[in-house]
Design a protein around this nucleic acid. Structure first.
Lengths: 214, 214
DNA sequence: CGCTGGATTGAGTCCGGTCAAGCCTTGTGG
DNA sequence: CCACAAGGCTTGACCGGACTCAATCCAGCG
């Protein structure tokens, strides 16, 4: 049972997924449970099978930066050096395949696998670079619009669910929850998106959203 | 299995440097000249031999994000996919070794080279992730302090030169030139650093700088 | 039902941006 | 060697967008 292609940012190539499925151990994490910690030795790699997760980084005084959100099919924590630079936490209950890095390395001679690892690292780098532009040069409204567009891009559905709360969005976008909330209501009142509940929306005007995401 | 430590952010492992030196073509770029353009096909990889460069990304309305600064020994533009996601420009006159990606791929069977490429990509990712925290969660003063610390970390010298202008710093830090300038004078009047000219400084109080960089 | 925690809304503040002078360095030509 | 111009940097006054603090609101759930 190979995973189908996933359009998600860090979708595991089928090759990595194959190895994980053959050799990985299944684990479950409850909502808000830590999957791994910042500064821990990075001995394991994780493949999300269901649910969603976030990576976070803390400053000494408690300020938090969310590095990214991960969904079923995504690899988490593999693109690191000896030590994790982020923590990872379950956003919802989720099931994960876990494999020792060491085990993956045993396939090191396998060109296809090597390439898949590099490509996945590169994809993660592109995510980070896109994120840089958002944090460095976009306004609050543009950030929130970019975020919603990003969520929507993951799947061509009519309605989109937000597995994360406002605080997670805020820490991802470099804003406060209040500002995120205000921008969301503003986008709604200008008929760009429409929220059916706090965690579920549909896009009313894709062009307007695209334009605002800049 | 870990590569030797290189003090530069994206320092080419000796292995990649070896291949570049054997097979690369030497080129020169004048100050402010473009090395490659955003959205161009990424056919070539570049090894800076002397001088410094920046990578930049533009928004439609002209807002600019500087992705990073590169110095002698750094690889530029190799960690990309088919197309460059940033432009690269010479910060000063510089000399560069250029090699076709294709040529590097001919060594694809070479494990050491594969590993070096991955490590270099990973190093670039770590840079980007550190940068995310700065842009997402730090104040203007902390950003400037982080930046100066970063410059200083590259070499354990008494005095440090800044090859980039205020606008480049500002676009790197997600600030305006005025704010950068103000923070620099503020850091100077609180005796954290001391500028001998606009482009040259020394650190008066390393502890204070470290604390401010947060 | 009421409780609880997340989300929204409002009022006021402040950090960093904007606009506008001025200053200082560098380089060029007389 | 000096005068001047040009560009980069600094400084000041003011403004505004995002933050802070605080009060609701609301949905989910016991």
């Amino acid at each position: 049972m190979t995973l189908a292609y996933t359009p998600t940012p860090n979708g595991a190539s089928s090759k990595i997924a194959q190895v994980m499925e053959r050799m990985g151990a299944a684990m479950r994490f409850a909502k808000d449970e830590e999957i791994f910690f910042q500064d821990d030795d990075a001995e394991l790699i994780y493949l999300l099978q269901s649910g969603a997760a976030r990576t976070t980084r803390l400053l000494a005084d408690g300020r938090r930066q969310v590095g990214g959100f991960y969904y079923a099919g995504d690899l988490v924590g593999f693109e690191t050096g000896e030590v994790h630079r982020f923590s990872a936490e379950a956003l919802t209950d989720c099931t994960v395949l876990v494999l020792k890095r060491r085990a993956l390395k045993e396939f090191a001679g396998d060109d296809e696998l090597e390439r898949a690892i590099w490509e996945a690292t590169r994809a993660e780098l592109e995510r980070a670079q896109d994120h840089l532009l958002v944090l460095g040069r976009k306004t609050a409204c543009e950030r929130v619009a970019s975020f919603l567009r990003g969520v929507a891009e993951r799947a061509p559905a009519e309605r989109h669910a937000l597995p994360m709360g406002r605080q997670d969005m805020a820490d991802y976008l470099g804003l406060t929850i209040e500002t995120v909330s205000r921008m969301l209501t503003q986008l709604q009142s200008s008929a760009v998106v429409s929220f059916e509940s706090a965690r579920q929306f549909r896009i009313t005007s894709p062009q307007a959203l695209e334009r605002l995401a800049a």
